[in-house]
Amino acid sequence: MRRAFIISIPYLWLVALFLIPFAIVFKLSLSDPAVAIPPYVPTLDLSTGWTGFKDFLSQLDMENFIWLTEDNLYWKAYLSSVKIAFFSTVFTLLIGFPIAYGMAQAPKEWQATLMMLIILPFWTSFLIRVYAWMGILSNEGFLNQFLLWTGFISEPLQIINTNIAVYIGIVYTYLPFMVLPIYATLEKLDPSYLEAAEDLGCSRTSAFWSVTAPLSKPGVIAGCFLVFIPVVGEFVIPSLLGGSRTLMIGKVLWDEFFSNRDWPVASAVAVILLLILVIPIILFQKQQERAQEAES
């Protein structure tokens, strides 16, 4: 009885504020926009009973989804979001792994400090960290001044408002999400595995590739999910660092909703985004559960 009570509170909360809202998004994606408040039809009026519900159902259609397939913008935005998310995950991994490895190899008394240094940016505002790059990447910004000073370039490069700036921003802000899970697995790695590998004839490099790398897989996978999934729907970074040619679906959804006030299309965009992400999200959840089971 008491157990059921404890289960029910967070359960009902999540059903009410997480699951039901998705159902509404789904329903709305099948509605049509209208000049009204709220700006869509049909609205469900329960006072008319069963016929009202049937009437309501009959007015739902796939029109928004058809519209999404017909307009190139959406396809391109989805593809480009997935592409940007994929490559920035790869870059984040390439930069994050050596950092996590260096942290795990550092002397014990250093590890707490290094850990804090990785977490600190994570606690500071995301928005501020993206903003910091606006000043650096702009045409008169720091990077250009530095490159001009070194003589690598003779006139400022256009970095801000390009995809390069978006990549930099993503790698920068998501780096801790990659470093922390990798560090956690590397730190737990029994050093006698490496000693055993060397004892059995491995050089340091081959011991890394045949033991450390495969055993750090859970951390790498978790890190990649933690970067890839949210980046696909990222809004702030493309909006502040990207240009008009940076197509990302999070930004399209935002514009569709706030600028065009086309709620049904925005909902349809969200539903498709969710469909794209549902497989990685399920994989991520399964992996998290497995990791937790392995620990207990």
Partner: peptide, 11 residues
């Protein structure tokens, strides 16, 4: 060497 923890590679 045979390690105390055996250090058998789990993968």
């Amino acid at each position: 060497m045979m390690f105390q923890s055996y250090a058998l590679f789990p993968h």
